[in-house]
Computed example of a mutant assay.
Amino acid sequence: MQTISPFLWFDDQAEQAAELYVSLFPDSRIVSVSRYPEGSPGPVGQAMSVTFELDGLGLQALNGGPAFTFTEAISLLVRVETQEEIDRLWDALTADGGEPGQCGWLKDRWGLSWQIVPPVLFELLADPDPERAGRAMQAMLTMGRLDIAALRAAADG
């Protein structure tokens, strides 16, 4: 049993966010939704909290109001093997008001930060040849959405 999980505070769209997220990743599902009852601080019937899984990782989302917002100080790192997966997730997560960032980072429409990164990037940056690793690093620093072929080409010189 997973005893530690991310807890995400949304203004009022936790359920919509969870629905999008589970639609994007395999082995994902909404586990449960608790709704605000009569006499509570939220609108009756609106999702209060959503328990969901993304590729087996358990998360909680709360509709807690506008008191807190997301920052880049925390992000969800997604390792993907292919350029097609990078492109699919990048496009889906930046759609409808999301924002592209640098070096594989983006914000979704709710302001949650994500990193969409191919494992080859970590391999290239850890290359024992410092010049090869440096060329990969310099290429990454010029990118928003990461480009696997361009990273490899840069590393190879």
Rank of each mutant, 00 (worst) to 15 (best):
G56W: 10
L54F: 03
D91A: 15
E72M: 04
E72D: 12
E131P: 00
E72K: 06
F52A: 10
S40F: 14
Q115H: 08
V50A: 10
P128M: 07
Q115S: 07
G56K: 07
G58P: 02
P119T: 07
E81M: 07
I74Y: 08
G42S: 12
L77K: 05
D129P: 01
A47I: 11
I86L: 11
P41N: 07
P100R: 09
G65D: 08
T51W: 00
T71I: 10
G104N: 03
E81A: 15
E85Q: 15
Q83S: 09
C103I: 12
S49Y: 12
V117Y: 00
L106H: 05
G64H: 09
S49H: 14
Q83K: 03
Q115T: 08
L57R: 06
F122C: 00
Q115L: 07
G97W: 04
L121A: 11
V117S: 14
F68R: 12
V120N: 02
S49M: 15
G98W: 11
P43S: 14
G101N: 12
W90I: 11
S40N: 07
L124Q: 02
L106G: 07
S75G: 12
A126T: 10
D96R: 12
D55M: 02
L62E: 02
E99L: 14
Q115P: 04
Q60I: 09
Q102M: 15
G97R: 05
T82A: 09
R88C: 02
R88V: 05
L89F: 04
F52Q: 03
Q115V: 08
L89D: 09
D55K: 03
P100T: 06
P119W: 08
D129R: 03
L77R: 11
E53S: 12
L54P: 01
L89A: 06
E72T: 11
P100H: 02
E123S: 14
G97A: 04
G45Y: 10
R109D: 05
G65N: 05
C103P: 10
S40Y: 13
S40T: 14
G45A: 12
R88A: 15
V117C: 14
K107T: 05
V78W: 05
N63Q: 07
V80W: 02
L93E: 08
E84T: 14
G101Q: 13
A47P: 12
D55H: 15
L89K: 08
V50Y: 13
L106V: 08
G56D: 08
P119E: 09
P119V: 10
I74H: 04
P41Q: 08
P118N: 05
S75Y: 13
P128Q: 06
E85C: 09
E131Y: 00
L77I: 03
G56C: 06
Q83P: 03
L112G: 05
E123R: 14
E84V: 13
R88K: 13
P119S: 09
P100F: 01
M48R: 14
L124A: 06
L54R: 04
T69S: 15
S40E: 11
D129E: 10
G45N: 11
D91L: 02
V44G: 00
V78N: 06
T94Q: 01
P66S: 15
T82S: 15
A61Q: 06
Q60A: 13
W105F: 15
A73M: 09
D91Q: 14
N63S: 10
T82C: 07
E131R: 00
G65L: 09
K107W: 00
R132F: 05
F52P: 00
L121E: 04
G45T: 10
D87P: 01
D91E: 15
Q60C: 02
P118H: 04
D108V: 04
F122K: 01
L77C: 13
